[in-house]
Design a protein around this nucleic acid. Structure first.
Lengths: 209, 209
DNA sequence: CGGGATTTATGAACATGCTCATTAATTGAG
DNA sequence: CTCAATTAATGAGCATGTTCATAAATCCCG
């Protein structure tokens, strides 16, 4: 009763939020159980107990549903990473720590990850921008780590940390794509490949001078 | 008359090949004119003067049609690259030469390229393998170039040329993705970014020793 | 309360990728 | 040439993502 009274004036808003949440939960469950392609929007609506149209009045398309589901997790993952990030170790190790958490997350749900990463670069609309933003923040995070490493004289002062962060990111991605592509996904192998690429980048492959 | 006689015994085979070719040509035209999404398989069939089912008896799905169309071009592009490849210049320049040709090709048809590159890693089936093969050959090509450079003492003898080739490739791809994502695509900018990344990799960003 | 305005929910309808049972054409042995 | 077998072509039909006109629910002002 009191709850009803306190919520007077925004019952509609609360209802909408509830509907949104139940759609997201249904999507999450079905995506996890059946995979992205085999989950129909009708099934999502049915499980959520709403009409198909309702789903699309909350999310512009099916892909945005997946992004919404996974971005929640990825934000949480990033928080976990930061909490457990070791200090006072080489920047390479710090980056590998970062990569490990995400690789573990992605490889646990290869199908959904493939769908997400396929679209990473080219999704349009509100949810596409959120995804791109997440990727940018990832790069900036690496850039910060490199900046700190520079202050510790770990990397050369003349190095462009943002460019270097993009290099790290591109290696991180290529290893992720390769991993998700291979039938037997193994985070350890992925991380050791990534480590090799990073060491190569730190050392350089050209003849000095 | 004589033609007919000589082709006796494989009229069916020839017919099939003709049908295949006209389907491919229709696809190419429509993809170029309308883009991938706005080209329907019905439209392709109509333009080719065949039934919809015929299209799918020659190619497993719409995406394979796109791959078939673009792989032809990409093979030709690769041949052009090799013909005009400068010798006796730094490996970085040789790679930039390679990249230029492909960047030009991709940026001329951003929509189709986006669709192709989205699927690069994860396409299934016959045509997916052809695409993956093409990518592998690209990496091996770089690896060969690096091996030659090693013999010229241009890169360190202890460097792993295959790993280095993968690094080159990952930078090549990230720049391509970024380029295709940006509204104003500019091959020159892409190439200078790529050059920066390569120089960074050759020099190394860590402190020597 | 009353009732017009606004927001939210709905599912029939549409477009499209793709399948598959059926038909048509071609072949080659007798 | 005949005809059974093989291969190619076909399009109606299905499943599914998405739209949009309509209905239902909620709000808010007088």
């Amino acid at each position: 009763m009191e709850n009803k009274k306190t919520s007077i004036g925004n019952r509609r808003q609360a209802q909408k939020e509830d509907t949104r949440k139940i759609i997201l939960e249904s999507s999450r469950d079905l995506f996890n159980d059946l995979g992205f392609d085999k989950t129909s929007t009708r099934a999502i609506a049915l499980r959520a107990g709403v009409g198909v149209g309702t789903v699309f009045s909350h999310f512009p398309d099916k892909l945005s549903l997946l992004i919404a589901v996974l971005l929640d997790d990825l934000t949480a993952t990033q928080a976990d990473v930061m909490k457990s990030m070791p200090e006072e170790v080489p920047v390479c190790d710090r980056f590998l720590h970062l990569a490990r958490f995400f690789y573990i997350y992605y490889t646990k749900r290869p199908d959904l990850s493939r769908t997400l990463l396929k679209e990473l670069w080219f999704v349009k609309g509100e949810w596409g921008e959120k995804l791109t933003t997440q990727a940018f923040e990832f790069v900036f995070l690496i850039s910060d780590m490199l900046e700190q490493a520079k202050e510790r004289d770990e990397i050369r002062p003349e190095a462009d940390t943002l460019l270097c962060a993009r290099a790290f990111f591109s290696h991180y991605l290529i290893v992720l794509y390769e991993g998700l592509n291979s039938p037997n996904i193994d985070v350890k192998t992925m991380l050791s490949t990534l480590e090799g690429l990073l060491e190569q980048l730190l050392t350089g492959v050209g003849q000095p001078q």
